[in-house]
Design a protein around this nucleic acid. Structure first.
Lengths: 261, 261
DNA sequence: CAGTGGTCTAGACCACGCT
DNA sequence: GCGTGGTCTAGACCACTGT
């Protein structure tokens, strides 16, 4: 304030604070997982108002460099182990189902033990919206069983998925009963129990920033995008299931193999 | 968007403002590309301080829902036509190469006319870093031809890619000469000219926020993540090319089909 | 309890884009 | 010049996490 003519052509203060903190993190002065100075400490060190400090931290958060934990402080983001989500998981699942093993593609994908695995579920019947109807190849309004899941490993939400099944395919069957979830063998097994052996999967992958409510459910900090996978499960030419899967993108890499021979 | 239990139960005003604006954008009340109310207008409408309005807008910006232009205002993000990037493009490319057509997977993917297509290129020889060596299945330090490309359509950068080839496979061949880029038929054709007919592709897909350099080169605003595709090109069991492709995630959806039969 | 970040206010001045 | 967003200040009160 007493810095009378402080034209903004000069570096902005929150920028300087962010640059300096970024430098310290990159240089290892602030190692991954360790605490940054508190906001009051940064105010004192850089002689700026709290809002300026917070703006600097917001910038670093948006870059995915730091994470902030309520009541505790702001940390240099710890390295997250990346799990491989292989397209061969469906083949493995199919084989396990045939041999009677207990698994879902979730546990195969994430190498999580069955005992560490839990989920929230919410079933309802709903008419197909246009995009979903198109993915099924049916008329909009066709009645579906809509199932929403939140998958957790070690209590931490890892992915959400919304699965759609044609209602007249599942009505009255054990698949339509939430009490049977988690279902050993997952979707592949469920469809198998209905007399369908899946023959192909199509996945359309997009990425975008999490919206506020997803960030809440999946407990992801700023600066982390999510994968949105739209999956169609085929039995021959017929689509028997459509699912939309949301996974924080910092935890996984999607792995696809395309054979040309 | 159902509300989600959050640490805070009190009404957070900036959240309410953001939720309402998000609702209007989704409902089409504020169509893509059009202006949101100005900050003073929002202050009046919601009876909040300017800082609160700005926090709401920052949230929407981080979600990729709006973009702000200095001196002009904040806009609902204009709809970007999403192009499908199909895993069958490699098959198509292979067939076109065999029939003598002029194309690259880039033009097939993005449905861009050959005449609208341009690129920057930069070739050099470099020793394989550990991760790249591992993808090739060779010793670190093995000499490679490293080629960096920036692909443009209608003058606008669309994707960057860094391609690696084993140097002793291409040294002295036309493939190693930058003057031959853009090469009709792309990588498939180049490898074909070296006597390799590709038999499989493996793609590992990750997503993250763009770093400053990438945001600059690809001209992407905040709130847009990028896909990072690590591609291995196989001839039987041998990896003949490794590429890292960076594409802004708001422009494409990746499309994979997995046959189980 | 003390210390941390989260939210909010009310002002000020500056830089940019347009007309 | 006027309206837009960008930066910054100096306070205030609240909620969460630890001892």
């Amino acid at each position: 304030m007493t810095d009378v003519p402080t034209p903004h052509s000069q570096p902005r203060r929150y920028r300087l604070v962010a640059d300096e903190l970024r430098r310290r993190i990159r240089a290892g002065v602030i190692p991954p997982g360790s605490l940054l100075p508190s906001e009051p400490a940064l105010m004192a060190e850089f002689s700026v108002a709290r809002g300026t400090v917070r703006e600097a931290l917001a910038l670093l958060r948006a870059e995915g460099l730091v994470v902030t934990e309520m009541g505790r402080g702001t940390y240099a983001r710890p390295a997250v182990p990346v799990r491989r989500l292989g397209s061969d998981r469906y083949r493995a699942e199919l084989e396990q189902v045939r041999s009677g093993g207990l698994t879902t593609s979730f546990t195969v994908d994430r190498q999580v033990e069955w005992s560490d695995y839990s989920l929230d579920k919410e079933f309802r019947e709903s008419p197909a919206t246009s995009p979903v109807a198109e993915l099924f190849g049916v008329e909009p309004g066709t009645m579906l069983l809509e199932r929403r899941f939140v998958f957790r490993a070690h209590g931490i939400p890892q992915q959400t998925s919304t699965s759609y099944l044609l209602l007249d395919m599942v009505a009255g069957t054990p698949v339509a009963d939430p009490a049977n979830e988690p279902w050993p063998g997952g979707n592949t097994s469920q469809l198998h129990s209905l007399g369908y052996t899946i023959t192909a999967i199509r996945e359309q992958v997009r990425a975008r920033m999490a919206v506020a409510d997803e960030a809440d459910v999946l407990r992801i900090p700023g600066g982390v995008p999510v994968f949105v996978i739209t999956r169609q499960t085929y039995v021959e030419a017929k689509v028997v299931e459509v699912a939309e899967i949301v996974i924080p993108a910092d935890r996984v890499s999607l792995d696809y193999r395309i054979d040309l021979a």
